[in-house]
Structure formats: structure tokens, C-alpha cells
Nucleic acid binder design. Structure first.
Lengths: 192, 192
DNA sequence: TCAAAGTGTTGCCCTAGAGCAATACTTTTA
DNA sequence: TAAAAGTATTGCTCTAGGGCAACACTTTGA
């Protein structure tokens, strides 16, 4: 098996019992691609036609608001799937950009191929359901976070639960994820 | 077919092509229940073991924060499913309460029965996936909403997209959904 | 290798929204 | 049907966090 598919195999293996030879039959649907730092994979207002698995590096999913603010929804590090799900499902223009914020290596599968696998491979069906469930849980927590907690508490939460975001990314990125300005983040860090 | 299952049947029918006689074979897993106004179906910190379909009335899913604030995540009106998904999936204690805010009629299916149906009935499998996808899209929009928009803009968004919430529920409920105080909501309404 | 662009910190002032209190009104319950 | 509890509105004051400007520091790239 080509090196490129090992992480994906391990990922699926962890979620479902999965035969290696079956996996080898369909893994070619996932096309390897190398991304430069800052390269944009999907532009806001265009339709998203693919799903992405990150082998190496980090992708950022963010939106430009009308007032020009950058709102970050999600960072996909190694071993994570990510896509503009709203657009992928509805095939309406996406409200978010997908950008590599480090030199990255990813596997890309087209929408058609992906849903074909979901339909025909029970393990992929299950894995997709699991991804959706986990994503839903995460976003739900994030809503309660925004709704009920101060910026300082949100920062503390991030330190406890997603320290990678703080250690690996610039303050600007972290601030746009927390929904505050870099100024405020800088000030809050002195209060920790 | 008993009256109680008509709405559920229509709901599934709209999402998938579904044979009525197949539906009749498993719909008894869903148990009808009548709820009084303000009745609590699930208490925070207990494990959620069921999924709910609303035939009539309205359920509210909310959390008591440490400072005693009530944070509302979701209102389920007629023809909607709702559960404390985080708890249902992980079987960890729920961080939210489920409460009938009007006299309501619901169908309740146990966790085991529900996942059994998801596994064995393709239409339910598909419907569950669809529910997850839609729920994910909604919560994602809500995050961008909280992250990037003022309380007034969030209120405007609600008027355009979920007017039922505004017309049918008390200001207190609406405010806790928007993540603001009833005072602020009252003031914002004069600015519309 | 040195200019140019981006990043982080801090002082100052400003604004959206919170919190409390007072009052009016409506709903529930006994 | 009256008392009690909950809901809505508004004035006043306070605070978390935003936005600008200035400066230091680091990274990028011709």
C-alpha cells in the first residue's frame, strides 16, 4: 500500500473493523495533493465539490464577514477530515474559504465518489455518520461556549481541550477562532 | 394506522421513498407520550437514553451555566426530532435539560431501538444521516452568527429565518436563544 | 542582505450589552 | 376572584471587549 494512504487506513481502522484488501479497492478515489503555505483550496462563494483528509499540515476553514472580519470555524490538523459541508450537501455556494496555513499534504475525494462510497461501503457509511456525530457534538459545545462564556473562559477552555491550536498557530488565527480581536487576546494572555 | 404516527410517516416519506407497510412494522418502537406545560423530560447531568419526535407543541433544549444563566440551544416544534445528542451518543451525563414549553405530544424511542432501526432499516439510516447533516449546517450557521454578528443582527436573522420562535415564544425564551438578556432584547425591538 | 510586510504588545478612549431597580401588565393557582 | 408569580419595559450605571495608533520584533522575499 502506498505510504499516502496509511493514515487514512489507520483512521478508518480505528472507527470500524475494516479489511485492508477492501480498503485497497477503493482508496484510489482519494487523490493525494500537496498544498503550499497559504494556498486556497476553496474560495468563498464557489461550490464545494470535494471532501478532504489531512495527512500533514493544517487547513483552516473561515469566512469573510460583510464588515471584512475573518471568522474561523475549524482547523483541520493531521488525521482529520474537513469540507465545507453546507455547500457540499446543498451544492449552493460556500460561505467559507478553505486554506492551507502550513505546507500540507492532503487526500481529496470528489463529492460523487464520496457519496458513492458512503452508499456502497458500510464502513464508510458508518465512518461518515461518526464524523457527523462528532462534528455536531463539537459545534454544539462551541455554541454553548460562545453563548455563555467570557472571552477569558473560552481561552481557558481552548487551552484545556485544543492546546494544539494555541501552540501551533499564530495569535491572529487563534483570535479569529475565539471570536475576539488579536488585541484582546494579547491582553487576556497576561491574565492567565 | 393510528393517528399518532401520521406525522412521523409524512416526515420520513418526505426524506426517503418509504413503503407504508414497512413503516407499520417498526413504528411501534416509537411510544406516544403527552407532556404538560413546563414538564421536564430530561434533567441536566442525567444520561439521555431516547430520541424524540414532536407531534404537537414545542420542546426546549437548554443548559444551566455555572453562573446560573439559562442558555437555549434549540427549540423543537412540530415535525422535528430532538435529543441531547452528545449524551445519547456517548452515554455520558447530559449538559442540557429537555423541557416541554407548551402542552405537547411526542413520540419517544429508546436509544437501543433507535440505533437498531438505523442499522437495519436503510430509510432510517438515511433519515438519521440527513438529520445529522441538517443539524450540523444549522449549528455551523449559528456559530458564525455568534462569532461575527451583533445582537441586533442576530435578531434580524431570526426574524427572517425562524419567525416561529419570535411569534410563538416569550421574550425570555427568545433572549436565552439569542444569548442576550431580556432587557437587551426589549431594547433592541424598538430599533427594528 | 536589507527593505517590506506581517505579527505581537500596550496605552487610550469608545460602545454594545449586562445588571439592577422600579413600575406596569398578564398569567397561574388556590 | 384575589393573591402570587411571572413577564415586559425603561432609566441609570458599569464593564468586557473593540478599534486606533505607536512601537518593537520577526519573517519573507527580490
Amino acid at each position: 500500500m502506498k505510504d499516502k494512504y496509511e493514515k487514512l487506513y489507520d483512521y478508518l481502522q480505528r472507527k470500524t473493523q475494516l479489511e485492508k484488501d477492501v480498503f485497497l479497492n477503493y482508496c484510489h478515489y482519494f487523490k493525494p495533493k500537496t498544498l503550499k503555505r497559504n494556498e486556497i483550496l476553496l474560495h468563498q462563494n464557489t461550490v464545494c465539490t470535494f471532501n478532504i483528509f489531512v495527512n500533514k499540515g493544517c487547513l483552516r476553514f473561515y469566512s469573510h464577514s460583510e464588515e471584512g472580519k475573518e471568522l474561523t470555524r475549524y482547523f483541520a490538523f493531521e488525521n482529520k477530515f474537513g469540507t465545507s459541508l453546507t455547500s457540499l450537501i446543498s451544492q449552493a455556494p460556500s460561505n467559507e474559504n478553505i486554506q492551507a496555513i502550513e505546507k500540507s499534504e492532503v487526500l481529496i475525494i470528489s463529492r460523487n465518489d464520496f457519496y458513492h462510497l458512503v452508499k456502497t461501503i458500510p464502513e464508510i457509511n458508518f465512518a461518515y455518520r461518526d464524523i457527523l456525530e462528532m462534528a455536531y457534538i463539537t459545534t454544539t459545545k462551541r455554541i454553548y461556549n460562545f453563548q455563555g462564556e467570557s472571552a477569558l473562559d473560552r481561552l481557558r477552555w481552548l487551552m484545556r481541550n485544543q492546546p494544539l491550536i494555541l501552540t501551533r498557530l499564530s495569535n491572529k488565527m487563534v483570535a479569529s477562532y475565539l471570536g475576539i480581536t488579536p488585541y484582546t487576546l494579547s491582553r487576556l494572555k497576561t491574565e492567565l
